[in-house]
Design a protein around this nucleic acid. Structure first.
Lengths: 169, 169
DNA sequence: CACTGAATAGTCAAATCTGACTATTCAGAA
DNA sequence: TTCTGAATAGTCAGATTTGACTATTCAGTG
């Protein structure tokens, strides 16, 4: 549901064509949501069928025609309903990385530690990247702040795991 | 990839039939991974085709026949490769709940706060549930501990968001 | 005994998602 | 001017995931 919410929300601010939506998501929200281009088109198509958005063909100069998506009244209503539903519920996140930890004892502790140190390096890079993120105005800031809090908590925890495994050796 | 890793890892400890796998995941790992029954069967089938597991039909007494899945040597190898890959990489989590926060300003602050308080209640329940989780032995403990750390960090952050929104009113 | 509900064990069509691919326009380099 | 690479704008077949559905066995109840 939250991908639809995202698309509707962006269209609600201003009408956009597919590429614009995709660019926005990729450049401002890449750390927080994962929405592929083809998925975006698929969802826009679906929501067009459901009457939440309409498409108009436009061409500017000689460029290939663009399909500009507009929110309809029904889409606006749907947006608000999804928004309320999203805000009111806690959707647990799952962590792909936890599966590996479950089978840690199938490797020698020293190897496990060195693998987890590679993981740590990537996580540290993600922390650094989010710290570098320009201060965004408005509510986008919440998302970034959440990501910061989360990544820092992840890093501290991973460090404690590595420390314990190192002691066991 | 991590769903395959999980299934291979469980089979590596002991051969199992589909239902057993599903039960184990549902009862011990429900907070950390999300693997539906039908997905598990699909993946087992696929891995059978790839030669990582074999199926044998068994029947005990008069019960309907069971398909017991065994890990092959190739499966063992694949398991270790996936395990190393999983441990060595940080896979970022995405938070569906962040999308709603991005569009917070489309609702009156007071409504937003009351919706987020519902979210908070669910999150608090998740925290309580994970605290109640029996101490697991071995490496399953890491997953549970991670979930605890994560949920507590989530709760603290959500509280700070709610507090700030309440002050704005 | 006949019936019911829970545990057991899956199947399948439909919904969803993705990677790989195709095209056009344009600015600048050769 | 021709070529190249980046930006623009999508399409589509195939992979993945899921919800809803089907069956059998068994323990206990009336």
């Amino acid at each position: 549901m939250e991908r639809e919410l995202l698309l509707l929300g962006l269209l609600q601010k201003e009408e956009m064509h597919g590429y614009q939506l995709h660019e926005f998501i990729d450049s401002f929200m890449q750390t927080c949501v994962d929405l592929k281009k083809s998925t975006a088109y698929y969802l826009l198509e679906k929501m067009a069928k459901e009457g939440y958005v309409t498409r108009t063909e436009e061409r500017e100069g000689n460029r290939p025609p663009r399909r500009v998506y507009h929110l309809t009244a029904a889409g606006e209503e749907c947006f608000l309903a999804l928004l309320r539903q999203n805000l009111a519920s806690y959707l647990p996140a799952t962590f792909a990385g936890d599966t590996g930890l479950t089978f840690l004892d199938n490797l020698p502790a020293s190897e496990a530690v060195s693998l987890l140190e590679q993981r740590r390096a990537q996580l540290a890079e993600a922390v650094a990247a989010i710290e570098r993120a320009p201060l965004h105005t408005g509510t986008l800031q919440f998302m970034i702040e959440h990501q910061q809090v989360h990544l820092q908590s992840e890093l501290a925890w991973l460090d404690s795991v590595i420390a314990r495994l190192s002691n066991e050796e």
